[in-house]
């Protein structure tokens, strides 16, 4: 029997806004499969996003959804989670939203290790506004605001998250669609702040300017650069040049923020043991 996505989609809200060939829809399907696997209660699940094409995702899913301001998803979500720790809180958004304007909220959510899962769709560009470069655009690439090639070096989102204190960090790609839900499931099950970066494509504003003749070419690139962490262990540095590791990159047991705050309450009330 085929998977029933409709169960999780809001009736009447499709078609979505995404262009043909955009990877965001693949990520949404992965998230839906993860929600189904975990059998999360819709009423008890908040999906929070910022602004951008990727951030439109929550509007399609039949949960408590919060489409906030550009870059601010992590801060809004922190308020939701702190006030109602029993809720499942999932964040999603684009690379620009999360690492430029929202970079500060992102690293502090990592640092607090608050029990939320952040799915960041990295298409290496500001898609929604027409293809300006983001902090994840490769050096030298063309964007609408780098007509002579991008002079900026980019972020490695996973390393940023690990460095900032996130206790679970994984990476997948829109090409490896079947892996996405598995990474998200593991991330949601993990107690603490979990980050799942999905390498994604934007054929409309990135592919076009950077000599990708088709969506297939963009997908093939994702297929080619991705190396599962396990496989990478057996490869030498020369073979790993230009490759990007995928899978669970980091997992650590660490005090979780809401649980730590519960201890603050116990101490304040003099009930701490």
């Amino acid at each position: 029997m085929s998977f029933d996505y409709d169960k999780w989609l809001r009736p009447g809200k499709l078609p979505h806004i995404w262009c043909p060939g955009c990877g965001h829809g693949i990520v949404m399907k992965g998230l839906i499969r993860a929600l189904e696997t975990l059998q999360l209660k819709k009423e008890n699940t908040a999906i929070v996003s910022g602004i951008g094409c990727a951030s439109r995702l929550p509007g399609y899913i039949d949960c408590c959804t919060l489409h906030t301001a550009h870059g601010r998803a992590a801060a809004f979500a922190t308020g939701v989670k702190m006030a109602k720790p029993e809720m499942n809180v999932i964040l999603c958004g684009g690379d620009g939203d999360g690492t430029a304007i929202g970079g500060n909220h992102f690293i502090h959510a990592c640092r607090r290790n608050i029990d939320m899962t952040y799915i960041i769709m990295n298409n290496m560009i500001y898609g929604m506004t027409g293809g300006q470069f983001s902090p994840c655009t490769p050096t030298g690439a063309k964007a609408s605001t780098t007509p002579y090639g991008n002079p900026d070096p980019g972020f490695d989102i996973a390393k940023l998250a690990i460095g900032a204190g996130a206790s679970f960090v994984a990476r997948g790609t829109a090409f490896h669609a079947n892996q996405i839900d598995k990474l998200i499931v593991e991330a949601i099950q993990h107690k603490g702040f979990s980050v799942v970066e999905i390498l994604d494509d934007c054929p409309t504003t990135y592919g076009r300017r950077n000599k990708y003749k088709s969506v297939i070419e963009m997908m093939n690139r994702l297929k080619d650069v991705a190396v599962p962490v396990k496989a990478a262990e057996k490869m030498d540095p020369e073979q790993l040049k230009g490759k990007i590791l995928t899978g669970v990159l980091h997992k650590q047991d660490k005090p979780e923020y809401c649980q730590e705050y519960a201890k603050v309450i116990e101490r304040a009330q003099g009930t701490a043991r």
Binding site: L66, A75, G79, V80, A83
Partner: peptide, 13 residues
């Protein structure tokens, strides 16, 4: 910015 965001998120609960 984050503080304002957090109180709105919390208020929504």
């Amino acid at each position: 910015i984050g503080a304002m965001a957090a109180i709105i998120g919390a208020s929504l609960t």
